[in-house]
């Protein structure tokens, strides 16, 4: 294998045969990570299912104090960001440097809009004493005693699930920025673009979590 020392494609790590094999391995690794993430969020969805089946009426009352229009707008914003991310990956496969940077930056802007709206929603909950803890009050929900405590369970799950989701976006945005910087520097081409594809998988996964959180937390009849 003397050819190894002669021609070494940009971005190829030494332990891979070629860029195709490297990209397959990277994609597989990311999917194993996502499988782990599914279990990670799965535990919270399980807790949600059990408590909702026990206290469905209180969950419905408590959920009426979430802002459905803002939640729906955020769902649309996140779907738009998934589209721009898909187009960034598409541009990377075609080796269009400027388009990769443009679509990644658009994805970051949309992610920022989502987090901004989320912050407005969180502030509403603090103002209305709906954050679990010593200052929680069922007054706004017209619930007291046991039912007030069950409403705290709903809001605990609300903050744990949307908070963990938002944390994933807070982690994702700087990573996308880093990949956009690398794209701007011209590190990616038609044969080496795995990092763009990998960060795309991560972003779409975060979108999928929200696709489930929105109806389960906001739309309880």
């Amino acid at each position: 294998m003397s050819s190894h020392a002669v021609a070494h494609p940009q971005g190829l790590a030494h332990h891979f045969r070629d860029l195709g094999q490297q990209q397959s391995a990277a994609g597989l690794g990311m999917w194993v990570f996502i499988a782990q993430e599914i279990m990670f969020f799965g535990g919270l969805f399980l807790a949600y299912t059990i408590y909702r089946s026990q206290y469905n009426d209180v969950f419905a009352t408590a959920s009426h104090h979430l802002n459905v229009p803002l939640g729906a707008i955020n769902t649309a914003v996140l779907i738009c960001s998934s589209l721009t991310m898909a187009m960034a990956v598409h541009a990377a496969a075609l080796g269009k440097r400027q388009q990769i940077v443009l679509f990644l930056l658009l994805t970051i802007v949309l992610g920022g809009v989502f987090l901004g709206i989320k912050a407005v929603e969180y502030k509403e909950k603090f103002d209305h004493h709906l954050v679990p803890g010593p200052h929680f009050s069922g007054h706004e929900l017209k619930l007291d005693g046991d039912r007030e405590r069950h409403a705290q369970i709903y809001y605990s799950l609300y903050f744990a699930m949307t908070g963990l989701h938002a944390l994933h976006m807070v982690i994702g945005i700087p990573i996308i920025l880093w990949i956009a910087w690398r794209a701007y520097r011209g590190e990616f081409n038609t044969s080496y673009n795995a990092p763009v594809e990998i960060v795309g998988l991560y972003w779409h996964f975060v979108d999928i979590i929200w696709i489930f959180l929105f109806p389960l937390l906001y739309l309880i009849a």
Binding site: G27, L28, W31, V32, I34, A35, I38, M39, G42, G43, F45, L46, T49, I50, S53
Partner: peptide, 21 residues
């Protein structure tokens, strides 16, 4: 096919987890 198997099996594990219900 390998990636598709990973995706399907991750969902299978999720179903086992949720079956606690």
């Amino acid at each position: 096919r390998l990636v598709q198997i990973i995706v399907v099996s991750s969902l299978l594990w999720l179903v086992i987890l949720l079956s606690v219900v």
